[in-house]
């Protein structure tokens, strides 16, 4: 534990000095501020922010997770040659990566929300939920990046390629796929298959959780509407959160298994 914290601490210090984590935070800061200035009230802003967040966070976190592993290969080897356990190192690297990235997102979004007074409005709970989902997506997709990165440690192009494909499928193509399924199998009862499909995509799950909170079924898409009807809002949210928890822990655990067993 002590070693993990040391690694985490040094790494995030190192990353904060690299300018692009700051750039990432500034991106969210400028975006949120502009939305609050020009897009009107709290709920509208939060929904627009959610849409950008659902596309951008998974991409940044995945690429960041994979790239960092490839860049720090020799450093990981040097640390593995020190008297520390592989588990400590794995969690240290994961924490050292996810803390600054999550922090940059949180600060970037929270600051404009503060100076525009959103915290005191009735949108407070929704704003907190958006921040929470953004953080969870960051943690989840860095974990997924770790899994892909360590699974294809020797073949960077493959690791990087699969990360991009994973993002493309989950963030962009998935809705089209669901629509296609609905269109082709429109004559059959589809609630359960569509429910199952949405559980297979963490980005979809995050969208459902947030939109269930806002209770705007028009924006939920088919999967969200089904989710809402199937579970009712509160249970729907719990079920979606549980599935996201699985999405967070399983890739991270697989990554850890590979890391502790592989040759360096």
């Amino acid at each position: 534990m002590r070693t993990t914290l040391r690694i985490l601490q040094y790494e995030w210090k190192d990353l904060l000095r690299g300018k692009w984590v700051a750039g990432y935070g500034i991106f969210f800061l400028v975006l949120t501020d502009l939305l609050l200035r020009f897009a009107g009230s709290g709920a509208n802003v939060l929904i627009s922010l959610t849409n950008v967040m659902l596309l951008f966070i998974p991409l940044a976190a995945l690429i960041y997770g994979v790239l960092y592993l490839y860049q720090s290969r020799e450093f990981v080897e040097l640390l593995l040659a020190q008297p520390i356990s592989r588990n400590s190192l794995y969690w240290g690297i994961y924490g050292g990566l996810s803390v600054p990235l999550t922090g940059a997102f949180l600060v970037g979004v929270a600051l404009p929300l503060t100076w525009h007074g959103v915290w005191t409005s009735e949108a407070l709970a929704s704003a907190l939920l958006v921040l929470g989902m953004g953080s969870l997506l960051t943690l989840l997709f860095i974990g997924l990046g770790f899994w892909l990165g360590f699974a294809f440690y020797e073949d960077r192009i493959k690791g990087f390629g699969f990360a991009l494909i994973a993002w493309l499928v989950m963030a962009v193509l998935y809705d089209a796929l669901v629509l296609l399924v609905i269109y082709v199998f429109g004559d059959y009862p589809l609630e359960k298959p569509v429910l199952a499909m949405s559980v297979l995509n963490p980005i979809d799950l995050a969208r459902i959780v947030i939109l269930l909170k806002f209770d705007i079924s028009a924006l939920m898409g088919y999967t969200g509407a089904v989710f809402s009807r199937f579970f009712g809002s509160a249970w729907g949210m719990v079920a979606a959160l549980f599935c996201m928890g699985l999405w967070w822990s399983i890739p991270l655990w697989r990554g850890q298994r590979i890391f502790t067993k592989r040759d360096f």
Binding site: E11, D14, L15, R17, G18, S72, R73, E74, F75, E77, L78, A81
Partner: peptide, 9 residues
């Protein structure tokens, strides 16, 4: 190690 590479910053 043979190649000495460390975190750049």
């Amino acid at each position: 190690p043979q190649i000495a590479r460390y975190p750049e910053n």
